[in-house]
Design a protein around this nucleic acid. Structure first.
Lengths: 205, 205
DNA sequence: CAGTTAATGGGTCTACAGTTCCGTTAAGTG
DNA sequence: CACTTAACGGAACTGTAGACCCATTAACTG
């Protein structure tokens, strides 16, 4: 079985185990950024983390399992949402935040690698799903408030609006690979608002 | 160096070489669908293709190069666009086509694997870029016609509208991993139309 | 503050992905 | 329809990722 990842639940979660996990996850992140997912070598990760190779193979066992645990770790550091009182401003803030993350050489490469890993393994895919679920829920509150303010139709699906903001940016990162400039972020936000106001993201159709 | 891929340009492109390439690319496709990208073994591909292992290592050399050549091959089979006379109908047709492709167990898995490979290698990424460039240009004509009919602002960027249709579907495939049902395809198309009509995809801002 | 054992780590072994060598096949040429 | 050589394929070789063994370390327990 793959490691639970989080310290909770293991028999002996204290000091050393936690330190080893942290060191290995940091090393994994660095290796992913530098080598990419297919070049990920567990032995190299172990050495970089200053940890025995055996430990990495025993606790994680595969590159995808390592990335899955990294995603659990990443999901825990939640990003604070904006609260400007205007839907457009809130979603612009979200779009620009996502854009900045994906456009950053380190983070962008990391996200590509993580998504590549998720495409190769079901457990990792599940971890990625949870990661985005947390992120989306955090920002969906902005949309819920906009509905209460009467800016959007009652039956609008808040999560779907938030995802609509991210989608074009991820498409640029992964598929079309066009530059992730600020204008593209603003277009993503404005498009989501326009579509939401037109009732495209209504729950019942 | 990586193989040019296309037969044109090689010194001896005739019969056998072309047959070998076709067999290897088919085998690669099958292997990607069954094993995923990280499980891709060039030896196994060779065996499945009924071709010498040496040949695969010589002509392609790596899993990513193999996928890059597969993408060149896939780009050649262009999909015919719709022409219903209505922008909404055309984009609905496009969205449903993309959805059907990505929702298909075989094709969906293949696309995930291909995108994973592109995330791991610059040459493969370039091949993927070209692939989508061809696809997008094909359907952009629908948007150009809509502009001429006066359905959309003059300065609308046609390519950007087409990408806006695909983006939410790819986001579902790769990131959020929600079901790719027909309703999601229709939302994607309607959202793109709503945003385009609102002038979000104007070239000059 | 011992005693217990989960967890780690160094060292060794092994299967197999990827390389090399060289003989064979067949595509292009005149 | 021979002749040249690009391209292929079988077999033997090798480096290394990953498995295994067992001694050591340090968390939890009472």
């Amino acid at each position: 079985m793959t490691s639970k990842g989080a310290e909770v639940g293991t028999v002996r979660p204290g000091g050393r185990t936690a330190r080893v996990r942290a060191a290995v996850l940091r090393a994994t992140e660095d290796a992913l950024v530098e080598q990419g997912f297919d070049g990920l070598d567990l032995g190299a990760v172990a050495q970089r983390a200053g940890v025995g190779k055996t430990t990495v193979y025993r606790r994680w066992g595969s590159a995808t399992a390592l990335v899955a645990d990294l995603l659990v770790d990443m999901a825990e550091q939640s990003l604070p949402r904006a609260d400007t009182g205007s839907l457009t401003e809130d979603l612009l803030a979200n779009a620009r935040l996502v854009r900045r993350t994906l456009a950053d050489p380190r983070q962008g490469t990391l996200f590509r690698a993580v998504i590549a890993a998720a495409s190769c393994d079901e457990r990792t895919a599940e971890a990625l799903r949870r990661f985005y679920q947390v992120r989306v829920r955090e920002w969906a509150v902005c949309v819920e408030q906009a509905i209460q303010r009467g800016e959007l139709p009652e039956d609008t699906d808040p999560d779907e609006v938030v995802r609509a903001v991210s989608a074009p940016l991820y498409y640029r990162l992964l598929a079309s690979q066009q530059p992730l400039d600020e204008a593209s972020a603003d277009r993503a936000a404005h498009a989501a608002v326009a579509a939401a106001k037109a009732g495209v993201y209504a729950r019942t159709r």
